[in-house]
Write a protein that binds this DNA or RNA. Structure first.
Lengths: 347, 347
DNA sequence: TTGAAAGCGCTAACAC
DNA sequence: GTGTTAGCGCTTTCAA
């Protein structure tokens, strides 16, 4: 079988354009030191020949890697799906390819994936997803990332404060405040928080915001129940059941993300608890389906896709003197799952 | 700043193990021509040193590329998210990295992405998503893929019949039959299909199955309205509105995928059409959220994640003499969005 | 079975 | 501004 699209090398282009290998290289990588006309000419010849550079040779020779590594906890989690979507959008636009790997939500997984990306000599790494409160875990990730940066790699993190790298940061504390205030404003006085693992900064921060709003309203701490389960739909399902049992007085459940909120809705529906009449439910993130679940979910919008885009744009830009931090806002989205608490029984 | 995890090269390993570069290379790539003990020894030394091969050098020198390219239409479309999830699951397990790129649902986009993957000399390409009925478009994709295969690359496609490569094939025709039969069995006699672009094989096949079931039941073609819109939630929203207007007699809408069905539900909810009392709605795929929308969606399950896993396993296996085809089944999932048609008006 | 040496295609010093 | 050349780290002939 004949390869119908023969693979031209840079020498072929140089030869055809009547210039040296070096000049051709310079022309194609847009580095200066070539006269404008010559550069233009080489580029047109290359285009016409259908020349595509060999990324491996380029990277081996010390050129900047053109691929970007994206590490997510789990691609099928909508939070990460939307971040990935933003990253890929910019990548397509700027002719970059991206390697996506899953860490499985563990520090060890992250370490493994960062190493793999280093093996592949990617030019940049975007690390998405909450950092951990465990200092040791974070230290080892930080070390690996520093080594990568020391070797010239660009790094951007999404949703992590404690790393010396460019960062895109959703304001989780304020978001927590916002959603709690909404519920408080509706008249709820006894609420429960369905939180993910206590070792994640995202969880801690959102919880802190909720607590702050709660305290500001002068309510005693005991009226805010907190339950930690998995950061998944299933975690929402089981967590809600536990809350129903342990805290029957609760009139509102705040799930720490939409996926858990959806699990919560499922449990409530199954138990015949009507939302929002008997129980209000709220989440965080505003994932795409939040508007379509039954009832539609009240939540705080975190602009995941934009965050992915920002992170990608950051790593495509030269490293600044000091790490940049891009804060993103949040927005309360009131839908059908929250309402005033049920009336007290009048005897 | 000091790189705390120095990057060892193969020479370093060879030296430390007291063997030649060539021997070390052979030992690590498990190719034969090395005595068992020596190979074992080299490997243990490499492990202990934390040696990781430079993927670029390896690939440049002619070694097989260890990364797999996955091309999807759009990563945030749940159909592809789940396929990607399956692919990544196996990748993590087998220590492969995967580059994900989006084609944006056009043949041109696919071409561009295949070329980019070829530039990066990936070892295999998984092309996911429906093929087009336009022979010209498919021809150019086929040509690009053949060239890649000719150069030793492995290829697997998901949901495409007409390409000479290993394929994972959902039975869309049968799935269409299944869902239509379900509705017919419920007593519906006038239905509408909310189809995606007519140029996609998936659409054509599912539609064919629906038509077949419809014809088998002896109903006249005119009682099955077909409307083509975008393959998105938005397409479902607008398509449903058009159907309501143009075909008020319809008692059931089959959307050609779940995402469109969800858009349809949204329009119906907004118009005050209750589901399934006034209108039944069904979809295809059984994406994760199908169970959580309101009302929960009746659909035909297509095992997307498994399909991704199969495809990945295929490209990790040696090319067979003839292209392999793995057919996957489907399963009717009856939920709350379908029911008997409303009673005729009794005057 | 093992080793020496020739590239793979490109970039970046270094000369001119 | 342009060309020459020495590698980048690995696999793979080819000899021994």
């Amino acid at each position: 079988m004949i390869d119908e699209t023969p693979t031209f090398r840079l020498v072929d282009v140089a030869q055809r354009a009547g210039v040296s290998l070096a000049t051709a290289s310079r022309a194609l990588s847009e580095s200066d030191g070539v006269s404008k006309e010559r550069a233009e000419h080489v580029r047109s010849v290359a285009l016409e020949m259908g020349y595509v550079a060999n990324a491996h040779a380029r990277s081996l020779a010390g050129g900047a890697g053109s691929t970007v590594g994206l590490i997510v906890h789990e691609i099928s989690d909508p939070y990460f799906t939307e971040i990935a979507s933003g990253v890929l959008r910019i990548a397509t636009q700027r002719a970059r390819t991206v390697q996506i790997s899953q860490s499985g939500r563990t520090a060890e997984g992250e370490l493994i994936q960062i190493r793999a990306l280093r093996t592949h000599r990617v030019g940049a790494i975007i690390l998405a997803g909450s950092g951990r409160t465990d200092a040791l875990d974070e230290k080892s990730v930080a070390r690996e990332l520093s080594a990568f940066q020391a070797a010239g790699g660009r790094v951007a993190v999404i949703g992590r404060h404690h790393l010396s790298a460019d960062a895109v940061l959703p304001d989780n504390v304020a978001a927590g405040r916002t959603i709690a205030s909404h519920l408080l404003g509706l008249g709820h006085r006894r609420m429960a928080v369905l939180a993910g693992p206590a070792g994640l900064h995202t969880v801690v921060d959102r919880l802190a915001g909720i607590r702050a709003a709660f305290n500001d309203s002068g309510l005693p701490e005991e009226q805010l129940a907190v339950m930690h389960t998995e950061f998944t739909r299933e975690g929402g399902v089981t967590g809600a059941a536990q809350i129903l049992k342990a805290h029957p007085e609760v009139t509102a459940i705040i799930a720490i993300n939409d996926v858990m909120a959806i699990g919560t809705l499922s449990t409530l529906r199954q138990r015949g608890v009507s939302v929002p009449e008997d129980m209000s439910v709220a989440g965080f993130d505003d994932i795409t389906v939040a508007a379509d679940v039954g009832p539609s979910l009240t939540t705080v919008r975190i602009p995941m896709a934009r965050m992915g885009e920002f992170a990608m744009e950051m790593v495509l830009t030269k490293q600044a003197a000091r790490p940049r931090r891009k804060k993103t806002g949040h927005e309360l989205v009131v839908r059908g799952s929250t309402g005033p608490p049920p009336h007290e029984h009048t005897e």
